[in-house]
Design a protein around this nucleic acid. Sequence first.
DNA 1: CATAAAATATGATATATATCATATAAATGA
DNA 2: TCATTTATATGATATATATCATATTTTATG
Lengths: 225, 225
Amino acid sequence: MSKCEQCIVREFSSLKALNKEELVKLAECKTSRLVKKGEVIFEEGENVNGIFCVKDGVCKLTKLSPNGKDHIVKLVTKGELLGQRSMISEEPVNLSAVALEDMQVCFIPKSEIMGFFDKNNQFSMNVMRTICGDLKESDDLVVNMAQKTVKQRLAETLIYLQDTFGKNEDDSLKIQLTRDELASMIGTATESCIRLLSDFNKLGLIELKAKKITLKNIPQLKKMA
Amino acid sequence: MSKCEQCIVREFSSLKALNKEELVKLAECKTSRLVKKGEVIFEEGENVNGIFCVKDGVCKLTKLSPNGKDHIVKLVTKGELLGQRSMISEEPVNLSAVALEDMQVCFIPKSEIMGFFDKNNQFSMNVMRTICGDLKESDDLVVNMAQKTVKQRLAETLIYLQDTFGKNEDDSLKIQLTRDELASMIGTATESCIRLLSDFNKLGLIELKAKKITLKNIPQLKKMA
DNA sequence: CATAAAATATGATATATATCATATAAATGA
DNA sequence: TCATTTATATGATATATATCATATTTTATG
């Protein structure tokens, strides 16, 4: 079992508040796991008795809507924690987590986290701040979904993907989503999503080469979003 | 200044975890305020240096969308706290709060709350749980907005309003929203909202009398939502 | 490498919803 | 009370988006 003390991603999450002693305890009880692209980490409604720390890779958090379509609520990447809300609420998880790339995640049992909660005020404050940030993001998303057109949401999402996950050497978006996934992030039909990408392409806003999407006119995309 | 010890609504919020001594301190530093229907408690972007405790009445939490329309993200009623997220994140508030009825609210300065945070673990746990609940609700709302039709959202919202705020003796919804407000809750144009209410009325699902809305066929409404 | 399967693309059409126009009803204020 | 504003209602029409069909391209697999 690798040592948490030496794990770099720890610095990016609430866990950065833990002291040496706590990190040693953490390293003893955590379990590491490799998750292949497409694999499920946990599923909506499941009881997850702890939290996951994403050491590498990206996953999507999805929720099944009553009409049978999956909606992507959030993307979670290296350095972030998964399952905090559910652990604190003492409820089954509300969202499913599915790997978009091969991932490395560590699982930390609830008992351990609750101990840190009690004894390390900075840690609980960090967790609280993270959840507050998630809440703000989610509220904003509600308004976007309710009030913006699909075109606006697509433009916005493309910019978000580039800002958050960066680009390859050829300037194309680093994160690879299928059209289907992109559609289920902006809340539209796959065909509509493809059609709009096509339009953006013709307008010179983006470039489509194979599956790769390259943003060509970010100011204009921002203006429409 | 009235005593917090004797305030009943306290029992419904995170404040229920406070002990006698803490309540006395609270009563000394809090300020009470009457808010008239339509009045603004705080506005998106403002710095609110503390939290509000709703003693009586209901308010809406809204966010201005880029297209200039207000969207109602949440309704907050007696016993709930306002502004917790912003206080913890140390950010301006993300939403505006506007009274839907005459209200009584108490303002508790941040310094006081932060003190309780440090010393009263149960209190901070309560706050955390509330915010986690809000996050779940918000995530669910995102999916609803993105994946459901306006008709489904209207049916769902009507049921929510009855479940949450109850009905009058004549069975009509207790909470009085204008069509405009109802529309900005479900994320649609006012005319579309009115038209669908009209359809529901013709189908016998609801009854419209003056401004009053009465749910007539809840099972059917639930089925469509 | 060839074939099947999956993903992407595009056209045709249907449907949901927004917008604009106008009418009626209810609330407000002098 | 009447006049004026505001909210509700409904029709006509435009527009955005979904759905269904089919083609093409890309990826996976033996």
